[in-house]
Amino acid sequence: MDVLDIAIALIKIVVMFVVVLLTVAELVYTERKISAWIQNRVGPNRVGWLGLLQPYADVVKLLLKEDIVPAAANRFIHTLAPVISIGVAFSTLAVIPIAGPTITLFGRTVHMVIADVNVGILYVLALTSMGVYGLTLSGWASNNKYSLLGGLRSAAQMISYELSMGLSLIGVIMITGSLQLTDIVHHQHGWMWNLVLQPVGFITFLVASFAETNRAPFDLPEAEPELVGGYHTEYSSFKFALFFLAEYANMITSSAVITTLYLGGWQVPYLETFGLSDGWMVLVQILAFMLKVAFLLFFFQWVRWSVPRFRYDQLMNLGWKVMLPLAIANIVLTGALLLFL
């Protein structure tokens, strides 16, 4: 571990950071465009070509606004909460592998993942469970009834769905026999994606991801008709921008996790039959990975503008009475199949 290694790690982190930030900006744009198409509107079309620069104008607008902290709020936690949200959203990406082969840079072999952790899946789950803190603490620290209710709802929702999320993962772990994300991707060679091997687990994991990212139809923590803005009612300017950023970064993170676990990660079927060099392989695989993530991101937005929000009791019923038994049944079934086949 010398200076060059640290520099390479830092470069990877910065690249990941910049790519995610730019993707978030364009995600806000596509979200507005997709919602417009679904609702038969035009959507943003004034700032830049086809309105492509709209999100940047929005960011500047947000940052120029006054940062208001309510008088009775807990200043320290009120400021810290968005930082926790954003930190958690970004750190999960550290374990996601984006290509298989290594490339040589400055005489070092560089792996296409920031940190290839042994317990990758558990790391992802642990960080997901920490995401609750940003929302809950922001709700509490704002000293506002709506914020608090939003924060409490988010905590209840995330705890409930985390369980089925973890349980649906067990099927994948059983098939692969490893907690390392690179192993899991290597195992999904060719068309043997976990989507094919674990259809039930995929569906429960996908639904749980929607709940964990607080996206519609599970966006109860910020349900406008009942809770004004939910946990971020009392946030403005930069802090609100951070929450906004965290929501979209979380979408990217869960799309990347779903891709890695169920859609074969960077695997492109039959790619190795073309006899490409390692450099080209890396390029194609990164592209494939990004395409899969992009499709999932589109899916997230598609669902948001097509499905109405759940009622709170429906949310809890679905989580505990449908998702949990399904996830457990999936484990039993996977175990039986592994044992007898």
């Binding site: 790391y123 789950l125 642990a126 469970s129 920490m130 609750v132 809950t136 509490w140 705890i159």
Partner: peptide, 17 residues
């Protein structure tokens, strides 16, 4: 990781709750 999952993600959040 188990420490974070169990204590931070589970027990402490219930405590705060």
């Amino acid at each position: 990781v188990a420490q974070i999952m169990v204590y931070v993600g589970g027990i402490l959040i219930l405590l705060l709750f």
